[in-house]
């Protein structure tokens, strides 16, 4: 009996209020005139203006974006390879170790990952900077990518690949012409996930970043440790809006794609 009782309605309302009210309050207070963040003193967009003047934040945002794009691209390539090896690779020496190394980083506390990577970089004499952050982020996000991609690889019909091979494709051509287009949505969402993880990461980055490569989360963390500030509210609002617009439009696009495919299948059936 699927039905919305008053209990269901109340728990959904309260639950989603709990999930969204804090962010709504944050957004409202980013338009507060007063520097005292808790006292409402009228509508103003001045903190957004001050934010755009703040060179340190802009520099950090640029570093974060560069690191994010570089690390998520590396992570997508490596993660897709790893997923392909796990699902289609058959048996090879050390397969258990390999799948362990894919799943372990997903549950590893960030402080441990950060500490261990930093000690590695120091012992091989690699200077801390953007490169070390990219390496660190690519390593943990490739595991997320490979989980996303392998779930897609498991669910699609292997005989499509075999048919391509029978018809004279080389293994690489079969991958490029058959497999890749089919798993493309998973690869893209893996890339987006890796990008989000990288843009969001504070703990690992603060271990492996050098003094010249402060990322946005590091910058935000060091200023919110001192307390709530209206500039950070403004910055958070911008970031929340970017994510909301991105996620909602991505879901609308997939919804439309699914609808179109259903239409096509229906027309093909008629």
């Amino acid at each position: 009996m699927r039905r919305l009782t008053w209990f269901n309605t109340t728990s959904l309302t309260l639950g989603f209020a709990f999930l969204y009210l804090p962010m709504v309050i944050l957004i409202i207070y980013s338009f507060n005139e007063s520097r005292l963040v808790t006292v409402w003193a009228g509508f103003s967009t001045k903190w957004y203006g001050e934010l755009l003047q703040n060179q340190a934040f802009l520099d950090a945002a640029l570093v974060t974006l560069k690191v994010g794009v570089a690390s998520s691209t590396i992570a997508t390539v490596l993660g897709t390879m790893a997923a392909y090896v796990l699902v289609r690779g058959g048996r090879f020496f050390g397969r258990t170790l390999f799948s362990g190394m894919i799943y372990a980083p997903l549950v590893m506390p960030e402080v441990i990952t950060g500490l261990s990577l930093l000690l590695l970089f120091i012992s091989i004499g690699l200077d801390r900077g953007m490169i070390t952050i990219v390496l660190a982020h690519a390593t943990f996000s490739m595991c997320y990518v490979s989980v996303v991609v392998s779930s897609r690889l498991v669910s699609f019909d292997k005989s499509l690949e075999e048919a391509a091979l029978d018809l004279g494709c080389s293994a690489f051509e079969a991958f490029r012409l058959v497999t890749l287009p089919i798993i493309a949505p998973a690869v893209i969402s893996g890339w987006l996930l890796a990008l989000t993880l990288s843009l969001d990461d504070l703990v690992i980055a603060s271990f492996v970043a050098g003094p010249s490569s402060t990322t946005l989360p590091i910058k935000i963390f060091s200023s919110v440790r001192l307390g709530v500030s209206p500039e950070i509210n403004a910055l958070s609002t911008i970031l929340i809006l970017i994510v909301a617009v991105g996620t909602i439009s991505a879901s609308l696009v997939t919804k439309r794609a699914v609808k179109r495919r259903q239409m096509e299948e229906k027309m093909a059936g008629d």
Binding site: Y20, M23, L26, Y29, V228, A244, T247
Partner: peptide, 19 residues
């Protein structure tokens, strides 16, 4: 609606509670 907060910065979601 449940997944959306997950894509939003963890740091910002924690920070929101400070205020």
């Amino acid at each position: 609606l449940v997944i959306l907060p997950f894509w939003t910065s963890f740091l910002i979601r924690v920070y929101a509670w400070m205020g």
